[in-house]
Design a protein around this nucleic acid. Structure first.
Lengths: 129, 129
DNA sequence: TGTGTTTGCGTACACTTGTACGTGACAGCT
DNA sequence: AGCTGTCACGTACAAGTGTACGCAAACACA
């Protein structure tokens, strides 16, 4: 099954951009990242090669340019990553993390509304599980 | 001014236990961890030495046994760690993370209530910020 | 007092990660 | 045809990480 090696922090960042773009060349990812972060083109290239070798992306040559596309859904990676963090940092308990998110980082009123809606939905559709 | 090097995953786990115990010897931490995780005493010892050298713990000898205590508050480390993750994995947007936590991991009805309370409180005490 | 047990401490070591350079091939402009 | 910039790809390499061994000192108790 999913026995991919985990992604490192830097690789995660690249993966996120790749999900966003859906399909991209190194340059496209590089340009999406570089405004906010000083990083070399070749470094991004390495990260993307690693994404592929770890099984998180497919890739092919289009002409003489290599194109990458994610081969694992964000939700999956997010689950694996966050679960691991929650485990180690909170002993498996998610509530403190949510508290931190809600209290220590500003939640916009928009977000508040969204959250409420989410909770309502959850509560409704069966206390089951 | 906290320019400590970040903690690695394994170190985070040890740090969490140390926060829980408040003050502990290697053995105590080892015993708190080992039921759930196959790990060597010496390994835990190394992690704790690293916690200290990275500036996350103070330590002293009590008799011939070394005692460790956290020197950075959990909230601080949590903030730094989670912020970094949110940045890389969600481009800084917290809402998707909360959605994941609420939807993809079971939230107990207890937790639901707690969350609601939290939201209420937030909404009340000034939309400010 | 001899013997196994626990600890501190130094050391080790392969693997991962962050970060990048160099080279040779191709592409497009002049 | 020649230069200039861009890629893919191989390679590099120090620092960080996970995991532990080995030894000597101190203990516990038979």
């Amino acid at each position: 099954m999913g026995e991919r090696p985990a992604l490192s922090k830097a690789e995660l960042e690249v993966a996120r951009v790749l999900w966003e773009l859906g399909e991209a060349t190194v340059r496209q990812v590089f340009e999406a990242i570089s405004p906010s972060r000083k990083i070399d083109f070749a470094t991004v290239q390495t990260y993307m090669r690693r994404l592929e070798s770890k099984g998180y992306a497919r890739t092919w040559l289009s002409g003489r340019t290599r194109v990458y596309a994610p081969s694992v859904k964000p939700a999956t990676v997010i689950r694996e990553t966050v679960d691991d963090l929650v485990e180690r940092l909170f002993g498996g308990d998610t509530l403190p993390l949510m508290q931190h998110l809600i209290e220590d980082r500003g939640v916009s009123s928009d977000d508040l509304a969204q959250l409420r809606a989410l909770l309502d939905r959850l509560e409704e559709e069966g206390h089951g599980k």
